[in-house]
Design a protein around this nucleic acid. Structure first.
Length: 621
DNA sequence: CCCGGAAGGT
DNA sequence: ACCTTCCGGG
């Protein structure tokens, strides 16, 4: 298969780097796409379709026009826009779904937003049913504390599901969890679950095509773009992420959203803590690699535990009971289906005001898989394919070597292959400063998550040897361990900074206690990481991109989806661009935002929020 | 259509 | 960095 090299695994930096501070940067195309995807108004123009993260541009000219409007480039057209999209291939943000016209797919596999868990990819509307992640308190417990290391996510999950949920009484919810947690099922289940969107309730415009969708749902992997006989999936759903079902679960979207929206940021340590907690949990829950923490190296995250206090009521989400179907809830590990969603379908709904989103992602290119031409001279291309290599070690975070000519390597077929992770940056950051500037935190990033699927040892598929993978992984940068260590050790005072939570958290906090039995529990951290990583890799490898055809193995992808829309009204062409709205987008120094978030939201919710945040509504050229 | 190189802009 | 423009090739 692919070379080991590709192990990659990790998430690309770009995914992670928040960058842009609130006001600053310009909107990026992928953000914009995501934004459009999340709004129902644009369903006829661009919509999720098929696979997770896959979307189709139904009206290329319109999309181009919108983009051009946003960027004030009237000359924009699909040809140009598509060129820009192609650049994303290299960055791995997107890839093309071969065989389908105007169809692309976000490469969010396993990506989760980490830094700011607020993404909202969900549907737009108001409440996306799925949006909320359950994460009841129980989850929380599970998540982090399970084992001493935080790493043992897996077990946690299991536990949660099986054991103890407090929630059980809730009825269906429990089930859902289980599935979620179930290691094996997890992926499959995940996928299948949401298939049926409740069919958009009130599709304002939407054509009801969705019905057929189901057949596919079952299959974990929709697999290729072609859904097979049937064809497409529900149009509105966003494949990208699955949200949790949650209707029953009580998760509350918590106010967090609001905060962001409101634009108030707070700097309090408390808030920070919460935020961090949330983050942590997310990480744990989703099995993020430790790197996820890198962003805040010095911070220690408090343990997630406090469940719910707030959660309870803040947003009434959704959930019309009725439609929610059983399937729907299932899992969520990573994906949420989003879109469609409005519970009530408020097409006309009152437009909420638009908010701006302060944050944006910044991307960075991961691996250079590409080549660039050497020089003008033309050494005619040597195509060396060598490949292997990649950077070596250390740290240098940046490649200082200026001169090295790059070889053009063809990316091995695709995406998957390379991902090298650049650890470097991490290290940089970690080590770099202890005190991270506060704003550092701003921004959210994406991180890869592992899905829990299999228990550590079992490699069902037999895809790859774990060890090998591990090695690769580790080899890359050695950071992980280090990181871990660092984190752990650093516990610091709250004052200026928060302390990072050690990976290991104590169980007691959560209250979970010993309940967990998992087998893994006591594995050393390192091992765990390794395992986890291995798994990840394995998954990734498998999954990859073959979207077209190859993928048989299930994986999970997540994608982003859209989230709540903020203004339904007609923004469509006209108004939107022109109106000045608050114009706040530029908030300057924003410190950080701290959402009170309940900590445990799942990815989906995270994504949702983030998206929301992204709201790129800028206008005004 | 789709792919990417190249040059240029911000 | 991230496109935007242009363009030859498949």
């Amino acid at each position: 298969m692919k070379t080991p090299g590709d192990t990659g695994f990790a998430f690309p930096d770009w995914a992670y780097k928040p960058e842009s501070s609130p006001g600053s940067r310009q909107i990026q195309l992928w953000h914009f796409i995501l934004e459009l995807l999340r709004k129902e108004e644009y369903q006829d123009v661009i919509a999720w379709q098929g696979d997770y993260g896959e979307f189709v541009i139904k009206d290329p000219d319109e999309v181009a026009r919108l983009w051009g409007a946003r960027k004030c480039k009237p000359q924009m057209n699909y040809d140009k826009l598509s060129r820009a999209l192609r650049y994303y291939y290299n960055k791995r943000i997107l890839h093309k779904t071969k065989g389908k016209r105007f169809t692309y797919k976000f490469n969010f596999n396993k990506l989760v937003l980490v830094n700011y868990p607020f993404i909202d990819m969900g549907s737009a509307g108001s409440g996306v049913p799925q949006s909320a992640p359950p994460v009841p308190s129980g989850m929380a417990r599970g998540s982090v504390s399970d084992c001493s290391d935080g790493t043992s996510v897996t077990s946690e999950l299991e536990e949660a599901g099986g054991g103890g949920g407090e929630e059980r009484g809730g009825g269906g919810g429990e089930r859902a969890f289980r599935s979620l947690l179930h290691p094996r099922l997890s992926h499959d289940s995940l996928f299948r679950v949401y298939g049926p969107p409740p069919s958009r309730p009130g599709p304002p415009h939407g054509p009801p095509q969705s019905h057929r969708a189901h057949p596919e749902n079952l299959s974990p992997f929709p697999v290729s773009p072609l859904p097979g006989p049937g064809g497409l999936l529900g149009p509105t759903l966003s494949p990208a992420l699955s949200m949790t079902p949650s209707s029953h679960l009580a998760y509350t979207p918590s106010p967090s959203l609001s905060p962001m929206l409101g634009s108030h940021f707070s700097f309090n340590p408390e808030d920070m803590k919460r935020y961090l907690q949330a983050h942590t949990q997310s990480v744990y829950n989703y099995h993020l690699s430790p790197r996820a923490f890198l962003h805040y190296p010095n911070i220690v995250i408090p343990q997630p535990q406090r469940p719910s206090a707030n959660a309870a009521e803040s947003k009434p989400p959704l959930a019309p009971p009725s439609h929610a179907h059983a399937h729907a809830h299932a899992h969520s590990h990573a994906h949420l289906p989003l879109h469609h969603a409005h519970p009530h379908g408020p097409p006309g709904g009152p437009p909420e005001e638009p908010r701006l989103s302060p944050f944006q992602f910044k991307l960075q290119p991961p691996p250079p898989g590409r080549k660039q031409r050497d020089g003008p001279l033309g050494s005619s291309s040597s195509s060396v394919a060598s490949g292997s290599a990649h950077h070596n070690s250390s740290s240098g975070s940046l490649s200082h070597s200026g001169g090295t000519p790059k070889i053009k390597v063809e990316p091995i077929s695709d995406v998957e292959s390379e991902e090298e992770v650049e650890v470097t940056d991490i290290s940089e950051e970690d080590e770099g400063d202890v005190f991270a500037p506060p704003h550092h935190i701003n921004g959210f990033g994406l991180a890869l998550v592992n899905q829990p699927h299999h228990p550590p040892q079992a490699a069902d598929d037999g895809i790859v040897a774990d060890e090998d993978l591990d090695e690769d992984v580790f080899k890359t940068p050695a950071a992980p361990p280090t990181t871990t260590t660092t984190i752990t050790s650093s516990a610091s005072g709250p004052s200026g900074g928060l302390a990072l939570l050690g990976l290991k958290s104590e169980p007691r906090e959560v209250g979970l206690g010993p309940a967990s039995p998992g087998g893994t529990r006591c594995i050393p951290l390192k091992l765990r990481f390794k395992r986890r990583w291995s798994e990840d890799q394995r998954l990734e490898a498998g999954s990859d991109e073959a979207d077209d055809k190859s993928r048989a193995a299930p994986e999970e992808d997540d994608a982003a989806a859209a989230g709540r829309d903020e203004q339904p009204g007609g923004e469509r062409d006209m108004g939107a661009f022109r109106r000045a709205e608050n114009g706040e987008r530029c908030s300057p120094p924003s410190p950080l935002v701290l959402p009170p978030a309940p900590a445990q939201r799942r990815v989906s919710s995270e994504l949702q929020r983030a998206t929301a945040q992204l709201s790129l509504e800028n206008n005004g050229c």
